[in-house]
Design a protein around this nucleic acid. Structure first.
Length: 526
RNA sequence: GGGGAGGUAGCUCAGCUGGUUAGAGCAGGGGACUCAUAAUCCCUGGGUCGCGGGUUCGAGCCCCGCCCUCCCUACCA
């Protein structure tokens, strides 16, 4: 572990895309994990941001008749930062690759590579599409037909390509094949999950070529420090955000505190950049390598109601508008196995929202608050003698908290939630069995009634704390309805390692019935 | 071609290094209750565990072959 701070990152998102549920998914998962770690009392740093250089951005800006800087400013402010609000992300930092600190840090990093002889000048040959203004991979080149007979064309857009050679700087990636394999071997958890690890090991085992890492045909990028005719290839520059945001080259104190990162959360499509190229660059620069690259899977859309087109066409705010940010966060964390591909659908979201959130959890909060209101005037009674039924609840809570915490440690939020939900189910069952509404009819059983409701309220207290990382809004409402803050303090300060200790809510606390945590949604969307 | 992952109840998925009658949630069916968001609780349905062989006292989990789906096999981020 890094000596002090638990540092988690998302990829920085390429501004040319519009935010879609995939971005939201990655970002939410990181947010859940970091919020949980904060409630473990750890020092945590959660970074996300945007990748803003490169030829595609430049071209898009040109098409829109604005400077690239204006273009990315607009996208960041109108599309990307609002996404964080929409899905309720508590990031500690947001890095833009157009910020000065990134320019400075990136140049410092390159300088270090250069001085350590990890970079050299060479020439890159390949097929270049004049129309598309970019190199086309050999596999995407085909023999032309018809008018293009005798020429090579790009399979991507059909444009003619010609073989060109360009002077570029190269990174000696080929030097790192064995070092990487040794590293993977010594750090089996570095790449997760296993399937991705296997693929990357086999990829590296086949051999690595040096990497062309600069471009000289356009200038929307960061200049190579010793050669202003070149800008850094955007991928290589983008990876550097993880260290530049941590203060590399400009703030040693801060850098030492944050680096190396604990987890880089990425989609499996970019796992290779993060688990092969990135560690090699760090080794080359003499920096420690992150502890883990966690690659999540694809989100598949089941059924057809979900969208007109495809999942990637769906914007997070469509879901949030209907179900709210808490449900969005819950759904992706609960319904998918982090690290595997998984299916989502509007129907499933609707079903889980009602079965698990509204009927299971929300209704539980309602019924307990309502009964304390009805039988005790909204004042939490002191619990009396604990029977086997209460002990069962108490034991289950202790067990589940440990289980959930272990699941988060293993980067398995879905398992953490399924553990926590056992508390929801247990409490609903406990209430039905103890039937406080029956006990209330017996004038002489006031003590028993108090015990039942105090136990249920304690259970809700635990749920508010445990679910806060996943559903901060609903948890805050619940925390308020339990009247917990005056004596126990802020919800975000409640520690996971102390949550299972019983009888924390003091007798006399003011319990109010909250508005429905998750109101039923009758109108089927679309 | 080489490599990786997966094909388990209507749906979404669990099933650790092989071991009693293969599980959960949801959906469906029946019942109980009324504090609550027409909620909750209990019971219930029997799926050739992709196909065919094999190893074993015993395989969904091991081996062989085959079928199907998805992914990787580097310089778009």
């Amino acid at each position: 572990m890094s000596d002090s701070t638990f540092y988690v990152t998302t990829p920085i998102y390429y501004v040319n895309d519009a935010p879609h549920i995939g971005h939201g998914y990655t970002t939410v998962m990181g947010d859940i994990i970091t919020r949980w770690h904060r409630q473990r009392g750890e020092s945590v740093w959660y970074l996300t941001g945007t990748d803003e250089h490169g030829q595609k951005v430049l071209r898009k800006a040109d098409q829109n008749g604005v400077s690239p800087q204006e273009w990315v400013d607009k996208l960041v402010e109108e599309e990307w930062k609002p996404l964080l609000e929409t899905i309720d992300i508590a990031n500690d930092d947001y890095i833009r690759t157009t910020e000065q600190r990134h320019l400075d840090g990136a140049k410092a990093f390159w300088q270090a590579l250069y001085e350590r002889d990890a970079v050299y000048k060479g020439s890159f040959s390949g097929y270049y599409s004049v129309g598309a203004e970019e190199f086309v991979g050999d596999d995407d080149v085909a023999d032309g037909e018809g008018d293009d007979e005798g020429f090579k064309v790009s399979k991507l857009d059909g444009s003619r390509v010609e073989h060109m050679t360009e002077e570029n700087y190269f990174f000696r990636l080929s030097d790192y094949q064995q070092k990487l394999l040794d590293f993977y071997d010594a750090n089996p958890d570095f790449i997760q999950p296993e399937s991705v690890r296997n693929e990357l090991i086999s990829f590296v085992s086949r051999g690595l070529r040096d990497l062309s890492i600069s471009r000289s045909t356009f200038d929307w990028g960061i200049q190579v420090p010793w050669d202003d005719k070149h800008v850094m290839y955007v991928w290589i520059e983008a990876l550097l955000n993880y260290v530049t945001a941590a203060g590399y080259g400009v703030d040693d104190e801060r850098f030492k505190e944050l680096w190396p990162a604990n987890i880089h959360i990425v989609g499996k499509d970019i796992a290779r950049f993060h688990a092969v190229i990135w560690p090699a660059m760090l080794m080359a620069a003499g920096q420690p390598v992150p502890h883990q690259v966690f690659a999540h899977g694809w989100i598949l859309v089941g059924g057809q109601k979900m969208s007109k087109s495809k999942a990637n066409g769906i914007r997070p705010d469509e879901i949030v508008d209907t179900f709210g940010s808490d449900a969005y966060r819950y759904y992706f964390a609960r319904a998918l196995t982090f690290g595997s591909d998984g299916s989502i659908s509007w129907e499933d979201m609707h079903a889980r929202y009602h079965a698990e959130l509204a009927n299971g959890f929300g209704n539980l909060a309602s019924r307990v608050a309502a009964m304390i209101g009805k039988y005790f005037g909204g004042v939490l009674p002191a619990a009396g003698e604990t029977t086997a039924a209460e002990q069962k609840v108490i034991d289950l809570v202790a067990e589940t908290v440990a289980e959930a915490d272990a699941a988060i440690e293993a980067v398995a939020p879905q398992d953490a939630l399924s553990a926590v939900w056992r508390i929801v189910d247990e409490l609903n069952g406990y209430l039905t069995e103890q039937a406080p509404w029956q006990v209330a009819k017996d004038e002489s059983a006031g003590d028993r009634l108090a015990t039942i409701l105090a136990t249920a309220a304690e259970g809700l207290r635990v749920l508010a704390v445990l679910l806060n990382p996943v559903m901060p809004k609903a948890s805050a409402v619940l925390w308020g309805s339990l009247g917990a803050e005056p004596t126990l303090g802020a919800l975000a300060d409640q520690r996971i390692d102390a949550v299972a200790a019983w009888s924390q809510l003091p007798a006399g606390a003011t319990i109010t019935k909250p508005a429905s945590l998750f109101p039923r949604i009758e109108a089927a969307a679309e």
